[in-house]
Design a protein around this nucleic acid. Structure first.
Lengths: 340, 340
DNA sequence: TTGAAAGCGCTAACAA
DNA sequence: TTGTTAGCGCTTTCAA
């Protein structure tokens, strides 16, 4: 142990070399496990390292090696449990391979996406994990164009000019099953509240619903895109319910949207499923325990994060960009019943 | 704009100097806003910077300046919404001052706490935000002892040997109000399920409950410490309910614990509050909308994160370590009623 | 006000 | 197998 050696300022490789009576390059070689090192040399150096409590300076190492073992994660809002779990999955996987994760919240503002991408770039991250606030923001696309830093997109579609890997959720299969289930129950007017149409999940969910409806001419779908917020969830619910020919079933296209929908339904004193049926996309912690349990199109966010990290690590090892598709599944719940 | 200048590799200060026809030190001076720079010099340099799209190398800058403008955040599990919101509050505040945040999940393992602290130290973070998994782990305390890096503890008590700032929640006032409310309703046996007693929140919550009970000799409290997990919440609920003289009111000492409690109650077909009353510490996204709405001792996690960042930034500007106390409040809900 | 040059702590090419 | 040395890109004395 080094305790008690006093506030001997942080020792450098020079001090280690002196104490071991060898050159700095020998110390470096021992520490980087260079093959051509005698056992005796290794021993002496490691002893000196131990005695001085030497730890290599990460900045100097990074500068020399040209790699920082750091990955940047840009996310709209880490306080959304969905993204928090993705972040967890990614961080744990990256950690295991020696990478650290820088986290930046864009607060769902495309401008901040771009700013953070540039910042991370300047900080020389080895790779980027991106859950962007918009797929069309010019500034973001410019910041991304020509980046040689490997990128993994999380559930986003970007022009092929951006050579990126991606982890994509197959929203459609889950949504198809949900819609089919509602139709089976007898619903003929389905309302759907989605987030920004600039974002893949909203588009995919809408497309799946429309595809199912196209197979059932007797069924009508009304879609209200907006943003992935409780506020939009509540406002759109009110709109749909107050409109002509209100839907008998509602699909909340996001976990924040779900919260808004439930608020509005409660404010109106409407019961689920007797007054209206409800399906959510993505969970919040209590949706399983809600009364009635909420039918939900689920996916495994921890796995998404893991997979994103794997794709990034792959690229860092020289793999080509790759797209991975992860499933979604409809988990039925008592929040769905026949229309009243 | 620099687009079209070709893949001219990242320009360095040397290139800028050449193009401007000045020395590198002059470029540096302009860029660090050194006072003694002529207007003409400034103009020439900035033009060259613009033309080359030069961005200073963060690694080299950090190495020279001895500061990385980076803060490390060690947290048990970012997927817990409580911590995710704290992280958000901290990150946004740090970002505003030019700092980036490294995130590491200790997965509630004290060993990983220690490892991440050392890792961050080696990465030369300028400061540390710590939500530790244990307050007594020797390895962690060793890693912390004698660190000159400023530290801000989040709701943890450490020996004064660790000179750290801290953001502490006043759990007691909220818990007192909750307990008083339960007693007022007529409860005489209150069960409390807490997390690890190695952690401040558990201790404070228990202390407050016991203090209130001490003022009401007719009221008995049973406390089941364990871990901040749904599994413990469920198991402890079962134990309490199966014990002799089961409580008529339950306090879930943490949001994950709440989930376990609700699971177990549901499994037993018990209704809240008619069969048993329930109070939670800290929210989960739907607890407000749960039926019945769950009485909760709330605090503002975003604010906690902000405050932690402020304390850290203060220390980075030379302030002394400081303890900040943030309030908790009892938000009554229909999950509490008279004992059956 | 500007430039030359020394280094921050490390790695790696080259020499011995 | 080991040592010497030249930088990585920047900031900062020190001189001019």
């Amino acid at each position: 142990m080094t305790v008690g050696l006093g506030r001997s300022q942080r020792a450098g490789i020079r001090q280690v070399a002196d104490r071991a009576g060898v050159s700095v390059s020998s110390v470096s070689r021992v520490l980087t496990s260079h093959p051509d090192v005698s056992a005796r040399m290794r021993k002496r150096v490691l002893e000196a390292v131990e005695q001085l409590g030497y730890e290599p300076d990460w900045l100097a190492q990074s500068m020399r090696r040209g790699a920082t073992l750091t990955v940047g994660f840009v996310v709209g809002d880490i306080s959304n449990p969905l993204f928090a779990q993705i972040a967890l999955g990614a961080e744990v996987s990256l950690q295991r391979e020696g990478y650290s994760m820088l986290l930046a919240n864009s607060q769902n503002q495309p401008v901040l996406d771009a700013r953070h991408i540039r910042l991370f770039q300047q900080r020389r991250v080895d790779g980027l994990l991106l859950s962007l606030a918009s797929e069309n923001h010019t500034e973001t696309l410019e910041a991304l164009a020509g980046l040689e830093t490997p990128i993994v997109l999380i559930d986003r579609d970007l022009p092929p000019a951006v050579a990126a890997s991606a982890v994509l959720s197959d929203h459609q299969s889950g949504m198809r099953a949900a819609a089919a289930s509602l139709i089976e129950l007898g619903h003929r007017r389905i309302g759907m509240i989605t987030g920004s149409i600039d974002l893949r999940p909203s588009r995919e969910r809408e497309a799946a619903l429309r595809a199912v409806c196209a197979e059932h001419p007797e069924v009508g779908a009304v879609v209200r895109p907006g943003s992935f917020t409780a506020a939009h969830g509540a406002a759109a619910t009110a709109e749909l319910l107050d409109g002509a020919d209100p839907p008998t079933a509602l699909v909340a296209g996001g976990n924040q949207i779900l919260i808004g929908v439930l608020r509005e339904l409660r404010a109106r004193g409407l019961s689920v499923p007797s007054d209206i049926s409800l399906v959510s996309c993505d969970e919040v912690p209590l949706s399983e325990l809600y009364d009635p349990p909420i039918a939900t199109i689920v996916r495994d966010p921890f796995r998404i994060g893991q997979r994103a990290a794997e794709l990034l690590l792959g690229r860092l090892r020289g793999d080509q960009p790759h797209h991975a598709v992860l499933p979604s599944m409809f988990a039925p719940g008592r929040s769905c019943g026949p229309p009243r």
